[in-house]
Amino acid sequence: MRVIIAYFTIFIVSLSFLVITDVVTGMQLSEALDVLKESFDVFAPGEYWIIGLLVLFPILLVIAMKFKKNPN
């Protein structure tokens, strides 16, 4: 469970760092969020599947380790 929490904490801190960097350079918050959103708009549908799998991979590893410990 700690791995999942650490994983999402790092993800949120990274996105926050990107937005804060844009705000500090003089952008408005709405513009900084638009830049963040536009960076994900350029992906093709197949790339969204890959990103989804990469996001779920640590969670699936933790679940697999839980089941491996308790075979019941």
Score class of each variant (00 low, 15 high):
16 S>C: 09
60 L>S: 06
48 Y>A: 06
69 K>C: 06
44 A>L: 12
22 D>T: 01
30 S>L: 10
35 V>G: 06
33 L>E: 05
18 L>G: 14
16 S>R: 02
18 L>C: 09
1 M>D: 06
28 Q>G: 10
53 L>V: 07
29 L>A: 14
32 A>V: 04
23 V>N: 01
17 F>V: 14
20 I>S: 11
10 I>K: 08
48 Y>L: 08
25 T>M: 10
55 V>M: 14
6 A>R: 05
50 I>Y: 08
19 V>A: 14
2 R>T: 08
19 V>L: 13
67 F>S: 06
5 I>Q: 01
7 Y>T: 02
4 I>N: 05
71 P>F: 11
62 V>M: 03
48 Y>K: 09
32 A>M: 04
3 V>I: 13
20 I>F: 14
33 L>C: 11
49 W>L: 12
61 L>W: 05
15 L>E: 07
67 F>L: 14
63 I>N: 03
31 E>S: 15
36 L>I: 07
71 P>S: 10
58 P>R: 01
13 V>R: 05
48 Y>P: 04
42 V>D: 08
36 L>T: 11
23 V>Q: 01
70 N>G: 01
30 S>D: 14
28 Q>D: 14
12 I>Y: 05
70 N>W: 10
35 V>S: 14
7 Y>Q: 07
49 W>S: 03
20 I>L: 13
65 M>S: 09
21 T>A: 14
44 A>W: 07
3 V>T: 10
45 P>E: 05
58 P>M: 06
45 P>I: 02
56 L>T: 03
10 I>Q: 01
36 L>C: 03
7 Y>C: 00
35 V>F: 08
49 W>Y: 08
13 V>I: 12
56 L>F: 06
56 L>N: 02
31 E>Y: 09
19 V>W: 05
32 A>S: 13
